[in-house]
Design a protein around this nucleic acid. Structure first.
Lengths: 253, 253
DNA sequence: AGCGTGATTTGACCCAGATCATGGCCGCCG
DNA sequence: CGGCGGCCATGATCTGGGTCAAATCACGCT
């Protein structure tokens, strides 16, 4: 199953749900679109996907999509905007677990505990498709492509955890982080060399297990080396091979 | 679904597969036993689980169960022994991703890429149940409890990745590591205060992103503080509350 | 315009843990 | 037996990145 999918989307199916005029664009990046294609986008089972999906949002920057301990009832696909997930330990220290871009899915780590084990916080104005998980499981039993898609999404997320693994320098981590973001934007059809960092330096640092000052210094150094151009949160990647070389130990391939 | 399950196991079902006399004991810790219970251990569908499972082993210490790049066809439940998973980057540096005890499952992170993204290496003499994944998926479509169990195992593994997350001291990491092992042994019915470390100090250090010397020093310090008693790889936990307090920021609850 | 709050950058200093080095222990094998 | 190669422990030294501090900037608000 390719990640570049034909432009047939959920929202283009004959549908009784309201169309806000943006759905085509939003669903163009949807995490489930490949499941829809695989199952055949005109099969009657897919009408059920529409029954169990609910569009939610907007959430403003700083608002919670869910909180640690909330009972798990649904997973959320990001339609637009950016989200961070984080845990807060007893001492009140935050740990950022990940950033989620349009088309990616949050909440999968709540299936087992049946409660959300982390918070999800919008980093900018964000919209979601909310998929009832019990309904989704039931559908998965009847539509193998949906089941397979869920397995794949879960497995994929397992793999991405290893971006943080290992004992690596600040330069390696930051370069790998930027390349990872670039490839994820590219996979959804956005520019791979020019994008906006929705998260603060502090969030990046926390995610990469560095101090905010270190991230700032590394970015300044990368700029001085003409690897990137950065103004505030607006980022251009100038030397992708150079960045890839620096981050190679943390990157796939 | 509790992790302490009644003692009904796969191997106790009426079965046509060979019984080597050890299956009852081995399967007593099996990762799938709760799925069997949930589905009702006498339902005919479960006969199919027996068709798709295959007992493999023994593997000796240092032998590979699978290697990076091998095509993904099955997942493996540890019946006995211990396994580490690891990635080796282009520079030849190893990164230990996890340790797997009896009853735990390896290979779930290979579903999405359809190839194993890491090596699995036996740390001592190890045995496995090999579950064909295509057959398992097909069964999951027909038996909701099996599907649910797969979802839960995947989700559970997502959560466990956060043991390494965060910016924590060597003492915190080592204490949390010992407590994690203890609770996992306890969950399978082994002693929670006395067990054998199948992995070298170097493997522990690599997993925790420390130097082997640091792990050695921390363990010596814990011994001096009467938190543990340790001789080679034989470990007694003497002060569980004390260890828990040190590792609390990394531990659940 | 003036102010306040939070994000970002940059410099100075320090420390936890890495690295280097040494020695002991144990099992294996010729 | 004796040599060799893994592991493990422990001391000495070094350093990447954390911490503290201060200046600047970008805001929205009054």
């Amino acid at each position: 199953m390719r990640s570049s999918v034909p432009p047939f989307q959920l929202a283009e199916l004959p549908s009784s749900i309201a169309d806000d005029g943006d759905e085509t664009r939003f669903c163009g990046t949807c995490a489930f679109s490949s499941a829809c294609i695989a199952a055949g986008y005109d099969k009657p089972e897919l009408a059920e996907l529409q029954c169990l999906v609910e569009h939610v949002g907007p959430f403003c920057a700083g608002e919670h999509i869910f909180r640690t301990g909330d009972p798990f009832r649904a997973i959320f696909a990001v339609r637009g905007g950016t989200v961070k997930t984080r845990m807060v330990d007893k001492d009140g220290r935050e740990q950022v677990l990940g950033f989620y871009l349009p088309g990616e899915v949050i909440g999968l780590n709540a299936i087992y505990p049946e409660r959300f084990p982390c918070d999800a916080v919008a980093l900018d104005t964000a919209f979601f498709c909310r998929f009832s998980f019990p309904a989704m499981s039931a559908l998965a039993s009847r539509v193998p492509a949906v089941q397979q898609h869920l397995f794949r999404m879960l497995s994929k997320e397992l793999g991405s955890a290893s971006l943080l693994a290992g004992d690596h320098s600040a330069d390696e981590r930051v370069a790998a982080f930027l390349m990872d973001l670039a490839s994820r934007y590219a996979a959804r059809g956005f520019s791979a060399t020019h994008f906006h960092l929705s998260m603060s330096r502090g969030d990046i640092a926390n995610y990469l297990r560095l101090a905010a000052e270190t991230v700032s210094r590394v970015l300044s150094r990368f700029r001085a080396q003409k690897l990137i151009q950065i103004e505030g949160r607006e980022l251009h990647l100038l030397d992708v091979p150079g960045l890839r070389a620096i981050g190679q130990a943390l990157l796939p391939d």
